[in-house]
């Protein structure tokens, strides 16, 4: 088992290494560089005439005159040694300070969404598969099609519209006005959890739709297995039988796709956050892309990917624990 874990950890590091190169490429893609944008932002409208040599000075100051591989090494080196993601020019402070609290809120949102997704989809899908062609089963089919067709941000817009027209208040934000700038306290956490419900429901929307279909399909497969008939032939009570045999195996594909779900949630997060004005990483990501604040964008992209890779690793280990058929040695 420990060998298996070490192997997977190593694979995770390799993946992260390649990802960091890709992220760095994306950071370098926009035309012009940090010095151009820094100079433009700092001096535009001030009447000072910026010359090419001024910009060159800024480049030297930030070490931007070095070749790309050297810049990559200092960037990744800063992250690995000091957890330093560089400077944000839009906020004129370190990326770490800009990201700060938003990381915690993003993770809170992620785990709330994951828990909601699994708590809703697994029991309903199992029930629908057992009671095939029942109202619940047809409801599930309709819901899963809707969940795939109606993108989260449109659902968020619709909820926003309903909350504004019907209730006269917005569902956006992560805190009540009283708590936005208040220091952290139990009351603030409670307020946040309350505000997490709608965003995490919106984010869980399509992941749930997908899992409903997957779990139902696996459960239907498992229900027809001979091992279930064999267990029934042993005289096991029906509900015990369903839980012990097919349902237990229907969990496996869910576990194996945790990383995929996290990817999906993070993929949809920025736009949903924008619509619901949630102060977390996704919204900041859009903003930094629009401002071409690439160090912030790169940092966020790295963080989001790190969690996806980490959850992938976790799901691999969990699956190995759950399914004895998985060989712990090799591949």
């Amino acid at each position: 088992m420990s060998r298996f874990i070490i192997q997977r950890l190593f694979g995770m590091l390799v993946t992260l290494f390649f990802v960091s190169i890709m992220v760095f490429t994306i950071m370098e893609l926009p035309p012009g560089d940090y010095a151009d944008r820094y100079a433009f932002r700092k001096y535009s409208g001030t009447g000072i005439n910026v010359t090419e040599s001024d910009i060159q000075n800024i480049r030297v100051e930030f070490g931007l005159d070095r070749p790309a591989p050297a810049r990559y090494l200092s960037w990744i080196g800063g992250i690995l040694t000091d957890f330093d993601f560089g400077q944000s020019f839009a906020f004129e402070t370190s990326v770490n300070r800009v990201v700060g609290e938003r990381l915690v809120l993003t993770l809170a949102l992620l785990y709330a969404t994951l828990i909601l997704t699994y708590a809703i989809s697994i029991p309903i899908a199992i029930y629908a598969a057992v009671r095939r062609h029942s109202a619940v089963d047809y409801g599930l089919t309709i819901m899963s099609y809707l969940g795939l067709a109606l993108p989260n941000f449109l659902l968020a817009l619709i909820l926003l519209y309903i909350s504004v027209t019907v209730f006269g208040s917005s569902v956006g934000g992560l805190f009540s006005p009283d708590y936005v700038d208040a220091p952290w306290s139990f009351a603030k956490v409670g307020d946040m959890l309350l505000h997490l419900i709608v965003p995490s429901l919106v984010l869980a929307w399509s992941a749930t739709a997908l899992q409903l279909q997957t779990v139902r399909a696996t459960m239907l497969d498992e229900l027809n297995k001979l091992s279930v008939t064999a267990a029934r032939a042993r005289g096991l009570p029906e509900w015990k039988l369903l839980l012990k045999y097919p349902a237990r195996l229907a969990i496996n594909p869910v576990v194996s796709t945790i990383g995929f779900d996290v990817n999906r949630i993070f993929s949809e997060l920025p736009i949903v956050a924008l619509v619901l004005s949630l102060p977390e990483l996704g919204e900041l990501l859009i903003q930094s892309y629009l401002d071409l604040d690439m160090y912030v964008a790169g940092a966020i992209l790295m963080m989001l990917t790190f969690f996806i890779v980490f959850m992938n690793f976790l799901s691999d280990v969990l699956l190995a624990v759950l399914d004895p058929r998985i060989k712990l040695e090799g591949g």
């Binding site: 390649f18 893609l29 990817n263 071409l292 996806i308 992938n312």
Partner: peptide, 24 residues
Amino acid sequence: QRVTEIVRVVPVIPLYMGLAAAFP
């Protein structure tokens, strides 16, 4: 396989956004 692996772990829409942000 490696490229596939990377594209599989980076969230898709943020990735599109990053590439689209580079359009002059």
